[in-house]
Nucleic acid binder design. Sequence first.
DNA 1: TCGAGAAGCGCG
DNA 2: AAAGCGCGCTTCTCGA
Length: 410
Amino acid sequence: MTSTEELDLATWPIFSKMSRRGLLVSFDKMEALLADVQAQMEEQLALIECFAGRKLNPMSGDDVARWMVEQHMGGKHTKGGRLTTGKQALQQHEHPVLDAVLSYRGLEKLESTFILPTLEIAKRDPAPGGGIIHPRWRLTKVRSGRVASESPNLLAFPSRTEMGKRVRSCFIARPGFKLISADYSQLEPRTSAVLSQDERLLAIYREGRDLYIEVGTDLGVPRTVAKTLTLGTFYGMGGQKLFESLVAEGVVQGDPSVPVFDLETCDALLKRWFEVYSGVKRLVDETVVAARQAGGWAYTVGGRGRLLPGLFLSGWGWPLAKLREEAERQCFNHLIQGTAAETMKAAQVRVDANVPEFMPQLQIHDELVGEVREDRAEEVAARVAAQMHTTFQGVELKTDVSIADCWGDL
DNA sequence: TCGAGAAGCGCG
DNA sequence: AAAGCGCGCTTCTCGA
């Protein structure tokens, strides 16, 4: 593994090029979407007034909390003493007003965070059919070595919902070009498997089997549960959080062939996971011990350090234990997330050196997006994939590639 | 009127 | 015993 310093120096000019090239935004598509979103916001607002009997600002937690108190709805309170009005809290109650509040908030998020700023920023650099976005890459912001993006934060653009994909669809390839995406599958779990040398995980990956199906079989849970559970365990998720995640995913009461996912089951599942994949448990413990011996410094494989003074807090009282355990989770996360970031940077360097026809535009942690001339798309995509393909201590790291005319279709 | 902090939510 | 990690950005709220 190349050192983290060398990777930083080698990727610097690549990100510079990425920013200069930028991404083309279609004004027609974006403005049509904006009109849709605004119309739907009006609808939800009307719905709220209709069902609540008066106007309500869905964005004001105080306003929503006051109305909930009037309706004799209970719930958790924030540190500031108000009723919690987050998505989790509102979904506890069955009420059309709360449904509309959540819908409105989702739409408002799209409008104010993604659509309006993108239009505004793209207007600074007009181009045929729209404008160009030049994200500012922050290469020294994230302590794990990941990159961050500002103005706008393209790494946080929506992808999980239909409306979200419509936002991404406004980012299009220039005329005569195609967009290519190559994303590593399960980069962080694979990194964990390699670093922990856990026999079971290594076997799953070496034989090319689906991790989450295997975990599901090992623990007797559906694939979706196994996925949440596995990703959570890598970073120290607790029973409570796992339970909340499963509730949010709507798998709280499973079918009869599957255990019921109450809080106790979640605790037991986490415990069992670390028994079955004991190599990961060992790596977590060893990583923390090593960092303590190194004076509180956690290191990635490439040698990027993060100082975690909290590792030396002693005692079990509040908030000492909480802070120490937080530092321990950060310690392990630094190793996995940071090493994965180094894998990605190394891949970018190889692609830059060996596939000059590919013009990168975005790096999204485990994914590379860029443009290529239309007539060469298939061929160049294959070469990008070949350059990203690598073997990390016996485990293959491969990418899924796709070609499309807009970001949303990748 | 301005700025900081809280709450909330988007992503991998 | 109990525990998600890493970010950026927006609106609301409250005090200077």
